[in-house]
Structures are given as structure tokens and as C-alpha cells.
Simulated assay, not measured.
Amino acid sequence: MDIKTDFSLDAKGLACPMPIVKTKKTMKDIEAGQVLEVLATDQGSKADLAAWAKSAGHQFLGTIEEGEVLKHYVRKSGDEDAQEKKHPNVVSNDDLNKALDSEDTLVVDVRESAEYAFEHIPGATSIPLGELDERAGELDENKELYVVCRTGNRSDMAAQKLSEKGFTKVYNVVPGMSEWAFDKTSNQ
């Protein structure tokens, strides 16, 4: 399938959040209505770019897989439509660490399973962002959900999704695992 694009961005070999960071930067330089092709090799980029595009008000057109390369297509919306949404309930790593003592606290780690395996908060539930739609039913809606990722970007998108699904006590943890200075464990 030959798809006409206005620009192409090479994000091959980059891990989250870099494909999103580079896409966001590139989108600022193109005009409304133009289509950006993002070439990536990170499997997590499928869900990440789709969720980012939605939260930023852009149109995620789809992904074509060609071997190891994922070709994502995003159409830039008009500036009035492109106000990036942020989840309103944000807490710090310190806030989450204090909340860990409560039985009402559930930590949802939305990083990829490999990231989780090497280092995570003890007791955290691993649900990668790309699996959240199908696995949200595994979460207890009566608990306070603290959503964590590496830097707060994926967890922001996940917190928005969970709120849209009717969860009322959802918190995005920023800056997340990149600066988590408390107890950690691994599956190794």
C-alpha cells in the first residue's frame, strides 16, 4: 500500500518516550492537514503514538508493519483543535510513596513488560499502555489507582483512558520510575 505523506520521521531504534518526543517536536513544524509518517521499531510505539495523537487532538490514521519497521501515520489537526489534554490529578513520587501504606492504593505500571521486569514498585500491577483497553476490567474501581510509567507521559495517557472508562480515583505519578528513589524490585 502506497500512502502519500508530507513528511517522514525516522525514530527507528528509539525506545519510549523518544518516538513521541520526536513526533511532538516535528508536528510543531508542519501545517494543519499535513500527514506525518513515523518510522519506528519500538513495539510500544503503536499504542503510545495512537494515545498521544488522541490526547493532542491530532488524527492517528493507523500503522503498517513492514518486517521490524512500524510505519505510523498521523494527520495534524488545526491549531484550535490541538490543545493537548492532560489528566488533572497529578501526584509526585513522594505522594505515591506515602500512599503505598493504604489498602486502598493500587499501583498500575503502564510501561512495557520488559521495563517492568527489570525494575518496578513492589506490588505494582503491570498493564502495558497498549493492553489497557482490554485489561482495564482487571482493576478494582473502588481503589485509588496510581498510574506510573518512566516519565509521566504514558501514565498521563493511561490515566485519561481509565477516567474515560469510569474510574474516578485515578492519579498520574510524575516523574515516575525515572526518578523513583524508594523501594524497587525486579522479576530477575
Rank of each mutant, 00 (worst) to 15 (best):
D2I: 08
D6W: 02
D6S: 11
F7M: 08
F7C: 01
S8D: 07
S8C: 07
C16M: 13
P17A: 06
M18C: 01
M18W: 03
I20Q: 06
K25H: 09
K25Q: 13
T26S: 13
M27H: 01
K28S: 13
E31S: 15
G33H: 10
G33I: 08
Q34L: 03
L36A: 03
L36G: 00
E37I: 02
V38H: 00
D42W: 02
G44M: 12
S45W: 00
A47H: 06
W52L: 06
A53D: 03
F60C: 06
E66V: 12
E68S: 12
V69G: 05
S77K: 10
D79V: 10
D81F: 13
D81W: 10
K86Q: 12
S92W: 10
D94N: 11
S102N: 14
E103R: 12
L106I: 11
Y116E: 05
E119C: 12
E119T: 12
I121T: 04
T125I: 15
P128M: 08
E134K: 14
E138A: 14
E141Y: 05
K143R: 13
K143A: 14
E144R: 13
Y146P: 03
R150V: 00
N153E: 12
S155L: 04
M157Q: 14
K161S: 09
F167H: 02
F167K: 01
T168L: 13
D183R: 10
K184Y: 07
S186W: 06
N187V: 11
Q188G: 13
